[in-house]
């Protein structure tokens, strides 16, 4: 079979993932909640494992639905308990640890729980299908439009919550909307690409663009370029060197960030 046709869905999925996650990455870095995606993804994974443990078949809509419900609960938790005294990131870390532990406890009661845990971690971008891509495009577009309409509020609450408060915005309400939309996106993303790859798409293009650009627009566009280019290199590398595709892309992202850091040092 033609390698180009076989790898095209995986590449299109990478372009989609780059599109939404680079934007979200800018928010996440501003808020200083780097690991929120891993925590919410793990909470979604916990929901899916619970659904499988209840006897729903792998791949059924109920599994996705359980993931969403759990993610919504996580979002509520993060937005309600934004406290000055403790860093938000610490709550996120605890949520990650506890939901991972719970997932292991639940998986312990299933005959093949370990397979599910591993699958959610490493994902399977090679097997993404066109209907799946279409479904994901719809979800991302809806969320993207929602964020575009309310972009001023979202950006203000992310970068300066005190200022937002004084302007009369309900911070916890916008936080909840942010985490909810984030959770809906992450639940779809993780099903396609797995936790590790989604995390890379979220953070690495944003970090690289922050190193070299100041304005939001430039950061966004350069982040998109970086995400698409690096994932293409990763896919080609996995084909050329016969490597598992998802992990190969993650390694490429790491390598590219390293190059950017060195480049920045040299330029200074």
């Amino acid at each position: 079979m033609n390698a180009f046709l076989f790898l095209l869905p995986a590449f299109v999925a990478c372009v989609l993932l780059t599109g939404i996650h680079t934007y979200l990455g800018i928010h996440v870095v501003r808020r200083g909640i780097i690991f929120v995606d891993i925590a919410l993804a793990q909470i979604a994974a916990l929901g899916m494992i619970v659904a499988l443990g209840l006897g729903f078949e792998e791949g059924s809509p109920w599994v996705y639905f359980f993931g969403l419900i759990f993610t919504a609960c996580g979002s509520l938790l993060f937005s309600l308990f934004r406290d000055e005294k403790i860093p938000q990131e610490s709550l996120i870390g605890v949520a990650f640890a506890v939901s991972s532990a719970l997932a292991i406890v639940v998986a312990d009661h299933m005959s093949h729980g370990a397979e599910h845990l591993k699958e959610i971690l490493s994902g399977n971008i090679l097997w993404v299908t066109w209907p799946q891509i279409l479904k994901t495009t719809c979800i991302y577009s809806l969320m993207g439009i929602f964020h575009f309409i309310f972009r001023k509020n979202f950006l203000l609450v992310s970068s300066d919550p005190a200022q937002a408060q004084s302007q009369g915005l309900k911070v916890w309400y916008w936080d909840l909307l942010f985490y909810l939309s984030f959770g809906i996106i992450i639940t779809s993303s993780v099903q396609i690409a797995g936790v590790l790859l989604v995390f890379s798409f979220l953070i690495v293009p944003t970090l690289c663009s922050i190193l070299f650009f100041e304005s939001l627009k430039r950061r966004l566009f350069s982040g998109w370029g970086i995400g698409v280019l690096v994932s293409l290199v990763g896919i080609l590398l996995s084909l050329w060197k016969d490597l598992p595709t998802g992990p190969a892309i993650v390694v490429c992202f790491g390598f590219f960030l390293g190059c950017c850091l060195i480049g920045r040092k040299v330029l200074k």
Binding site: M1, F6, S111, L126, I235, D242, T245, P247
Partner: peptide, 27 residues
Amino acid sequence: PPSPGHILSLIDMMKSKHVSLILSENY
């Protein structure tokens, strides 16, 4: 997870040898 190279050669082999059955487990 398998590499793309493995899957591509698997598809070609299955077509040339007329493999008509794939077995997997429900987990």
